[in-house]
Simulated scan of single mutants.
Amino acid sequence: MPRVSRKQADLNREIIVEAATRLFRERGLHGISVVDVMAAAGLTHGGFYGHFESKEALAREAGGRAFEQSAERWKTRIAEHDDKNQARRSLIEPYLSAASRDNPGDSCPVVAFAGDMCHEAADSDLRQTFLDGLNRLLQTYGSLIDAGDAEQNRRQALVDYSLMVGALTLARATRGDALSDEILEAARTFLTKETPSQNP
């Protein structure tokens, strides 16, 4: 069997990472197998270990990719607005939408991975990837808040983002019931009805 060229090997690796990024978002970091990933990538199972030493190594890279994609999406949306409050709304409204709820493969990696992180060792590389990604998103969101000072901005960002993650998680858990849409609407309304500086 002829050897795969370096260019093709690099392309195959990229295909694997992209397939894993989507699957991990859909099912969680521990909800899929190497066989699942390679099938989604359209490649044979046996080729996996030519690219990654373990499923955990792939999970770290795919998890990092998922956070990069979310950060870039947020950056693009923010750049479309001069007003911070409008920019903030441009993050909240798509996040707390039916499309976000119904398409986890393209949605928030925090919601996708948080449950798995509860079972990770405190010093694991995978947990560090999660923490780095989460902090990056929190910093981006916090940059749109004018609540008084840096500490207040950080606290408001933590509260808002925790509400967003919790609401999206519950909306997915109740999908198919009217409660799911109620949760999304209530969270959206609460977060967008007033600017952070007006919140008590």
Rank of each mutant, 00 (worst) to 15 (best):
G42R: 06
S90I: 08
T76D: 09
S97Y: 10
A98M: 02
R89D: 02
R155N: 07
D106I: 08
A122M: 10
E53C: 02
I78A: 07
P109S: 03
R60C: 15
A122P: 04
L58P: 04
N103T: 11
C108S: 14
R155P: 03
C118E: 14
T140P: 00
L126W: 06
L168E: 07
L158S: 01
D116G: 15
R73E: 12
F113W: 08
S143C: 00
A114I: 13
D102N: 10
A62Q: 07
R127M: 11
G142S: 09
E56Y: 06
V159K: 07
M164N: 09
N135S: 08
K55I: 10
F113A: 03
G166P: 06
N153S: 09
V111K: 02
L131I: 15
S100I: 00
R172V: 09
F48K: 04
L144I: 11
F113C: 06
T140R: 13
C118A: 14
N153T: 03
Q152N: 01
L170S: 10
A66Q: 05
Q86P: 00
L134M: 11
Q156G: 02
W74R: 10
N103D: 14
V165N: 05
A112V: 05
R155G: 00
N85C: 01
A79W: 06
Q139T: 14
A59K: 01
A57L: 04
G115H: 13
V159P: 00
R155Q: 12
R89L: 04
E56W: 03
F48R: 02
R60V: 13
A40S: 15
A59I: 02
C118K: 14
G42F: 06
N85Y: 15
Q86V: 02
G148M: 08
I145T: 04
S162I: 00
L158V: 04
D102Y: 03
K75Q: 14
T169N: 04
R127A: 12
V37A: 08
L138P: 03
A173T: 11
G105A: 10
F48A: 06
E61S: 01
A71L: 13
H81Y: 11
E151P: 00
T140I: 15
Q86E: 15
P109K: 08
S143K: 10
L170F: 09
G50C: 03
G166K: 06
L158Q: 08
T76V: 13
R77T: 02
G47N: 12
Y49T: 04
S54N: 07
M164H: 07
A62D: 11
E72A: 15
E93S: 04
I145P: 01
L91R: 07
E68K: 11
C108E: 13
E80Y: 00
G115N: 12
M117F: 11
L138N: 05
E56R: 13
N103Q: 13
A66K: 02
L163G: 04
R155C: 06
A99C: 02
K84P: 11
S107W: 12
R136M: 11
T140Q: 15
